[in-house]
Amino acid sequence: MADTQPTTESGPIAVAPQYGLAMKRRGPVAVWLGLPLITLGIYQLVWYYKIHKELNEHDRRQNLSPAGSLLVLLFLSWTLIAPLISFHNTGKAIANAQRAAGLQVTCSPAASTWLAFVFGLNVWYMQRELNRVVEAYPGTTPGTQVPLAV
């Protein structure tokens, strides 16, 4: 079957622009070190849930489960492999969000995974990469509708 695009008599059909919701900017150091120390590690779980929810709302084409991602960290962290896979998938989701924002992809899923072994720096890295997506839409508040690149 040949790849064809639907056309009308006047030419190809225009694709409607996609929209998503803007994400919240967070301080990478606060997310990585400050707030988890103050809350005895609880904030990191809250943060992990929130970024997955925001990534899902930013680009509905991604099928993310915020609760599933959190449950992997809560109940399967003892396996070591499951959280690493979850961090890798989160890195891919952040890279897809950068692509959807029309940015050059700078988030590496491998770095999102292996930086977990270096003082948990993967949290700092992932938040820094998420902030690049937020900065692609200057002047928007979290939750407002933003256009996505196709």
Rank of each mutant, 00 (worst) to 15 (best):
V146Q: 03
L33H: 10
A30K: 07
K50E: 14
V72N: 04
N131P: 10
V31D: 15
A16T: 13
P6F: 11
Q44Y: 08
L71D: 05
L80Q: 08
E57I: 00
N56C: 04
L84F: 13
T39E: 08
Y137E: 12
L115M: 09
P109C: 08
S77K: 07
V105R: 03
Y48G: 13
A110N: 03
L45N: 12
A149M: 02
A93T: 04
L37Y: 02
M126F: 02
R132C: 06
L103W: 00
T90N: 09
H88S: 13
L80V: 15
Y49V: 09
N96E: 11
P138W: 00
F117A: 14
T4C: 05
T39Y: 08
D3G: 02
A67W: 09
Q98L: 04
K92T: 04
W32Q: 12
K92P: 00
L148N: 03
A22V: 00
V118M: 09
I94Y: 02
L21I: 01
F75M: 07
L73W: 12
V29R: 04
V118Q: 09
T113C: 13
T79R: 07
W78T: 00
R61K: 13
G11Q: 04
Q98E: 14
P109V: 06
V31L: 04
Q5F: 06
K53V: 02
L73H: 15
V118W: 06
L33Q: 10
A93S: 14
T79L: 13
L45Q: 10
R99I: 00
A30T: 11
T79P: 11
T90Q: 15
V150C: 00
P83G: 08
S10N: 11
V31F: 10
Y49D: 10
A67N: 05
L84I: 11
S65L: 09
L76V: 06
A30F: 11
L148G: 05
F87I: 08
V146P: 00
L64S: 07
S69I: 08
Y48C: 12
N56D: 14
R25S: 15
V123S: 13
T4I: 12
Y43F: 14
V15W: 03
Q5R: 07
N89W: 05
L148A: 04
K24D: 09
Q104H: 10
L45F: 15
S112E: 03
N122R: 06
Y137T: 03
V118F: 14
V46H: 10
G11N: 05
P66T: 10
V105E: 11
A101L: 03
H52S: 08
L71F: 14
A100I: 00
M126W: 01
I13Y: 06
Q104G: 14
V29S: 06
R61N: 15
H58M: 14
L76Y: 06
A95F: 03
Q145I: 05
L40P: 00
V133C: 11
V118C: 12
S10I: 10
I13R: 13
A67R: 06
D3H: 13
N96L: 08
Y49E: 11
Y19F: 15
W47N: 12
Y19A: 12
T79F: 03
L21V: 02
M126P: 04
A100C: 02
G120M: 07
A67E: 04
E54V: 05
R99T: 00
A149F: 01
T144Q: 15
Q5T: 10
F75G: 09
Q104V: 12
G11A: 05
S108M: 02
